[in-house]
Computed example of a mutant assay.
Amino acid sequence: MNNYLKLVNFEINRIAKLFAVLLGITFITQMIGVIVKSRQYMNLANESIFGEMTQAQFLEQVGQMSFLQVAKSLWFVTPIALCIAGIGFYIFLIWYRDWIGKNTFVYRLLMLPTTRLNIFYAKITTILAMTFGLVAFQLILLPIEMAFMKTLVPDEFRSDMTVKAFVASLPELNIVIASSIGEFFLYYGAGLLVVSILFTAILLERCFRWKGILAGIIYTGLAIAVWLLPIFLHKFVLNGFFYPMELLVLEIGMGLIVLTASIWFSRFLLMKKITV
């Protein structure tokens, strides 16, 4: 356990700069988005009211401004997409970086006095920690952004909403910020499974190089097919035989099987196929 924690700490230190950059981009871009959208709305309100409209007519035709108008803009969505892309990129970089350079660092990792599977666990823990950190930062940032919008838009022109109501109103955001403990385990469990499959595919490529690329693609396809097998059977073979809860239980069970298989296969590759 101690060696595993040291590896996790080491990996997190390596990711710290990228993590800080993503946090900075998210904060600056979204705060600019609040300013831009708030000013656009208030400029429109001022032009309309100082023209031929009354305030009541403007509110009736245009409506009050809510934080949803900020959230649906590129200012808000782009940094979130960038963070997701950054995590996706780092899933590969966290392994391939160890093979880059004259003094290949991965060999030092493999010679550490600990089971090689701890390397796998440490890297997947780092990906999860990075994901949770970005999500937590966004949750902290939301009430700050909403409070900032209140200083830019007067009460009579503004429709306030809670963070919970805001998240519930955006289905896309619900995947990142789960609204219940059950959804949290389902969404992030599925994410953990996908990362473990990709890690195994990367190790196949590292072990067998060009042949490993094909093997990794085949393994990824087979793993996903096995995971989704109950859904395929339910829709195309059994004509909707399972109840929704039964289908969910089957999917969770198949996911656990694929996750276990990926961990076992990765251990085999690390122990038997990658040599120092």
Rank of each mutant, 00 (worst) to 15 (best):
C83I: 15
F89M: 14
R116A: 12
I84Y: 07
I94D: 00
S73F: 14
L93N: 07
N103L: 03
I80Q: 09
K72W: 12
Y96P: 00
L117S: 15
L110R: 10
G86L: 08
R116Q: 14
F105W: 03
F89A: 15
I94M: 00
L112Y: 08
I94S: 03
L74Y: 15
W95T: 08
I100S: 04
T115A: 11
F92A: 11
V106Q: 03
G88D: 05
I84F: 10
P79V: 01
M111D: 13
F92V: 14
V77Y: 08
V77P: 05
I84M: 13
Y90R: 00
I80G: 07
T115D: 14
Y90G: 00
F92P: 07
N103H: 08
A81M: 15
R108S: 11
N118K: 15
L112Q: 14
I100F: 08
Y90A: 00
A81Q: 08
A85L: 13
Y107K: 10
G86D: 10
A81T: 06
D98G: 01
W99T: 03
L93K: 08
G88T: 02
I80R: 04
W95M: 05
T115N: 14
R116W: 14
A85G: 06
Y107M: 04
T115L: 07
T104R: 15
T104D: 11
F105H: 04
I80T: 09
N103T: 09
Y96N: 02
V106K: 02
V106N: 03
L109A: 05
I84R: 04
Y96V: 02
G101C: 04
G86E: 10
R97F: 00
R116T: 14
N103F: 06
L110W: 11
L109D: 02
L110C: 09
L112G: 12
A85H: 01
T115P: 06
L110K: 09
A71E: 13
